[in-house]
Write a protein that binds this DNA or RNA. Sequence first.
DNA 1: CATAGGATCGCCT
DNA 2: GGCGATCCTATGT
Length: 204
Amino acid sequence: MILPYSFYSRIDVVLIARELIGKVLVSRFNGITTSAVIYETEAYNGVIDKASHAFGGRRTARTEIMYRDGGAAYVYLCYGMHSLFNVVTNIDGIPHAVLIRAIKPLENSVDMLKRAGKPRLVKGIGDGPGKAAKLLGIHFSHSGMSLLKKPGPRQDGIWIEDRGIIVADAAIAALPRIGVEYAGEDAALPYRFRTELYEEISDI
DNA sequence: CATAGGATCGCCT
DNA sequence: GGCGATCCTATGT
């Protein structure tokens, strides 16, 4: 089933980041539907989180998306070349987000390989936030799209499904986030979640 | 208007 | 492990 508003609108972005492990991220662009299992995420805890783009209540044209009601895509350009895909959580006015850091291709991997410019599936193909977004064809111009409804077969869209995959807490490591050294004491918070279960390229 | 720097990646050694 | 790519975004004058 597609994850509903009630999943995204909750107050605990760290819990949501953990629960997104094992969920299936799906995109449909130009009639091509691709999907992948999420196996690494990071929580960004709004205005009190020094690592967040919304720290201190900062509002700009870019970060405005994060202040929206839960269930929207926040996609931004990093290092001038990588689109990084985030899920907006919490309710209108509270800028929580979860960065999707790693995915394992599921359906239509051939199309994902084309996007990645790779000849075949290899370990690590979707390991990294820039690579994950690229595999699914997600671009920073898609920032603000709703994740709450499946598009029609000819419509573009991004959504997340729960397909009943259960990942035990014991299989999920809580780690410090990557690339946020500037965030002072918040850099050490265990807001990154990762499981090794989907790192290998094989059937699920 | 000018500028510094970034929630990264891939290739090189 | 080091470095260059590459350009938007935020901030400051």
